[in-house]
């Protein structure tokens, strides 16, 4: 019986003579129970971190993560944002926030511009070396930066790019994910558009800027979100490439926190650390939640 009621909408329509009194629908309740459990599994740890960010270090040191608000919320957040020292001696949270933004936005924009240009060339032009260019570019999909981390570091170091934004951002762009997305998208654009543009006398550059780019707006937004989150959340590369604290990102700052906890000499500023963790997750989470329709579309179209 549970099976029939589970798909209640079509089933009731199919049997109009069914009794009008509503029964308790155990199947639906079970579905909701599982979904609520899953949501709590996702939500509770982060809520606890947020609650804990409002407590003093001694309480946290004694009792672990907290279930409810304490008194120190404002103090911890302002210390995490504006106080130099604490976990990192020469840099405050604002500096790290700025660096994270530079990395996230710089990476996303750089990637979008470069990959749109390349995808346009590959899809819309008759090129002598098209196949070669295609393979040269798409081979990079094979090897994530983590795999070739040490040689990449050596190369960047030999170019004197450690502790620069260029060294932080540009090597991350060296993969074809964006180009791949845009190639798929451009190929789905109707061919009549080019014909029409040609008849109107539009050249390839005009077609690109006036027709294709505006047409790709949603795709650009979706890829921007994905790339921003990817750039913001980078960990290993910033850890290697930035040794000066002035270049630390928030996610890189997490490593300092963990090391202070590992040292275990004094009670670490747990409250501030949790506040910093919340600050580190807030911008990407907000973007993903608010623009989730674009984001989901961009993500799921990418595998086609």
């Amino acid at each position: 019986m549970a099976d029939i009621t589970e798909t209640s909408a079509p089933a009731t329509r199919a049997t109009p003579a069914a009794p009008t009194r509503r029964r308790i629908n155990w199947g639906v309740i079970g579905d909701h129970a599982i979904l609520i459990a899953g949501s709590l599994f996702m939500l509770v740890p982060v809520c606890m971190v947020f609650m804990t960010a409002s407590h003093d270090p001694v309480t946290i040191h004694r009792e672990g993560l907290q279930w409810w608000f304490g008194e120190e919320l404002e103090a911890n957040f302002s210390a995490a944002l504006f106080e130099r020292g604490g976990f990192t001696d020469t840099v405050d949270g604002m500096r790290m926030l700025t660096n994270s933004l530079i990395l996230g936005v710089g990476f996303a924009i750089g990637k979008i511009i470069i990959s749109m240009m390349a995808a346009y060339a590959i899809v819309y032009f008759r090129l002598k070396f098209a196949t070669l260019a295609f393979w040269v570019i798409f081979t990079t999909l094979l090897l994530p930066l983590e795999v070739r981390i040490l040689p990449s570091y050596e190369v960047i170091q030999s170019m004197g790019l450690t502790n620069t934004y260029t060294g932080l951002i540009v090597p991350l762009i060296a993969s074809a994910t964006g180009t791949f997305f845009f190639r798929q998208f451009f190929r789905s654009v109707p061919e009549e558009l080019i014909e029409a543009a040609r008849i109107d006398g539009a050249g390839p550059l005009k077609f690109f800027i006036d027709i294709l780019v505006p047409l790709s707006r949603t795709m650009i937004a979706a890829i921007f979100i994905i790339m921003f989150v990817f750039g913001w959340n980078q960990y290993l590369w910033p850890t290697l490439i930035t040794t000066e604290e002035g270049f630390f990102t928030l996610v890189r700052g997490i490593r300092q926190i963990v090391q202070v906890i590992a040292d275990g000499n004094a009670i670490p500023e747990y409250g501030q650390a949790m506040a910093l963790a919340i600050i580190a997750m807030l911008p990407p989470v907000l973007i993903v939640v608010f623009f989730q329709n674009w984001f989901v579309k961009g993500l799921t179209e990418s595998d086609k």
């Binding site: 979904l35 899953g38 949501s39 996702m42 939500l43 982060v46 989150v229 913001w232 959340n233 960990y235 996610v251 997490i254 490593r255 963990v258 963790a277 580190a280 997750m281 990407p284 989470v285 973007i287 993903v288 939640v289 989730q292 989901v296």
Partner: peptide
């Protein structure tokens, strides 16, 4: 509720 954790960095 189920998807937002996507945006949290692995080290966090």
């Amino acid at each position: 509720l189920l998807m937002w954790v996507y945006a949290i960095a692995p080290p966090v």
